[in-house]
Amino acid sequence: METDFFDNWTVQVRKGLLELCILNALAEEERYGYDLVKTLISVPGLGVTEGTLYPLLSRLRVQGLITARLEESPEGPARKYYSLTRDGKKIMAAMNDYVDALTAATRQVQKGA
């Protein structure tokens, strides 16, 4: 029972943070999809698969937060490069601030208790 509750809760938290993780992964530089997805999959605790990440990337692109471009690669299939848009950067900053504030608030409540 406790395990089920925890699992459900982590799914909710993870789901809410996944988009922020993608935006953060693109904060520094443009990255191509395969590399980006592999990086995020390998993050411990995030527990995502390609089947989840690619739809999210597409949705973020449709929402105008990231852009994508295709580039031919001599080493194999064409590579799709993702980068943040100006809106994406603003949202990412706001989301990070919010998460920081939320974490701080959570800690503060814990100390208070």
Binding site: V37, G51, Y54, P55, V62, G76, K80
Partner: peptide, 25 residues
Amino acid sequence: QLYASGADAGEVIDDLGRHIDQEIA
């Protein structure tokens, strides 16, 4: 299943196809 996700189904399928090609490579 994707049409209700807000993502572009065609794009996602293309991306996954490319991803699989890279896995194979």
